[in-house]
Simulated scan of single mutants.
Amino acid sequence: MKTSITDVAAEAGVSTATVSRVFSHPERVSEKTQQKVLDAAKKLNFYISRSAAVLKSGQTKRIALLVGSAQIDWFTGLIIEGLNHVFRDARYDLVLYPITTLDERREFFDTLPLRGNVDAVIVSSFAISPDEVSRLQEAHMPVVGINVLDTTGFTASVSIDDFEGTALGLHYLAQLGHQHIAFCYENFGEGLHFSSTSRLDGFVQACEREGITYSLIHFSPDDAVFDAVYSALSAPEHAGATALFFHRDYTALAFCVRFREMGMRIPAELSVLGYDNSIFADVVGLSTIKQRPREMAIQAAEKTLRLLEGDESAATHDVAPVQLIVRSTTGAPRE
């Protein structure tokens, strides 16, 4: 005969309500009592049906995470780590939805309200349209952003100020004496509008404010970064640049490694500044603008749980700090 919740309660010496709380809301039960119930459940080979728990609570205990890439890069990896750090203890599963094409994007927002298989949506690093916002609102669920370009329609968000970050980096390079700086960025084309695109606008505004000559070097995600940037430097509009400011570390690191392989010196011949403080930035000695995706994800997850509990005070849009990290790839311009 299948073990019942009554059997577990009798074995643990507690009420059936306490057993139910241990499996549905463990934070409401002392650790000592939790352990007694779990030990009894293990001894009696008892388990709670997830589907039954969902039907009873009206929640799926799943959170959707939308990311704009099929690859788990440094940033997304830390976002997942931070979210799971909070959701795991709250007994929520995180479901990853890579949104890489317009068709995938359209399908997700068209069918999510009908499926109703998640309790909240977290969007990482790209903007959603007013129509997509209304689709999510039809589903009556919190929509929380992490590093989103525009918070319109989001219930809550945690983002860095990319304008502040680029201004911080530009001011530092100007103080070193650089008077012509090239900004290097990936052109992702139509479709997803990533938050990092605002770094380009921030760079241009900061240069104009500081009176710095600037030029823009763009390349596609399919280009070899070094070849694209190095060949662009021979063009007249870029020829006077003494520093390169990359919109993310990934591309800056690729350039630095290849530049050094060719026997050229950084920063003696060219200063390089990145953005992110990602993995390997310290190993290569890359000066960069630091952001903290894991900490932002933890804050976003905590907001999400509070919103699911009806706490409207969690519906805020917070700005996380950025920091200049100076290493060996930046210095005064060459004579």
Rank of each mutant, 00 (worst) to 15 (best):
V22R: 02
R115D: 05
F109G: 00
K2L: 12
L65D: 05
R292E: 14
A252N: 11
L112A: 12
T304Y: 05
P26E: 03
I48P: 00
K303F: 11
T155Q: 03
E132V: 03
A156S: 06
D223Y: 06
S271M: 09
E208A: 14
G331N: 10
A252Y: 11
A206D: 13
Q35K: 14
T16Q: 15
R199W: 14
I325F: 03
Q179H: 15
D93W: 01
L244T: 10
L38N: 06
R50L: 08
K2Q: 14
R260Y: 02
S196W: 07
F194R: 15
Y92P: 04
G189H: 02
L305M: 08
L38V: 07
T166H: 09
V326M: 00
A70M: 04
Y230P: 00
I279N: 11
E104A: 12
T16H: 03
D318S: 15
L96N: 07
I325S: 06
I146K: 01
F245T: 14
M141P: 00
L173M: 10
W74K: 06
V283M: 13
Q299E: 15
R50C: 00
S313F: 03
Y185W: 12
Q137S: 08
E138W: 01
L200G: 07
S134A: 10
P221C: 08
F255N: 10
A70Q: 12
S69N: 09
V229M: 10
A228K: 13
L173C: 06
A252S: 10
V67L: 14
T330F: 07
V67M: 14
T16P: 01
S157M: 02
P26K: 02
A139C: 06
I279E: 14
F109S: 01
L307Y: 00
L114A: 14
L38G: 01
L66G: 00
S129G: 00
L83E: 05
S287R: 10
E312R: 11
A297N: 02
L136Q: 00
Y275H: 15
R88K: 11
A206C: 11
G331E: 08
V8Y: 03
T316I: 13
E210M: 14
L233T: 07
Q175V: 12
D93R: 11
L170N: 15
C184K: 11
L176C: 09
F163A: 13
A281D: 11
L173N: 03
R28H: 06
A297G: 04
Y250T: 13
I298N: 01
L270H: 06
D110Q: 12
L216H: 11
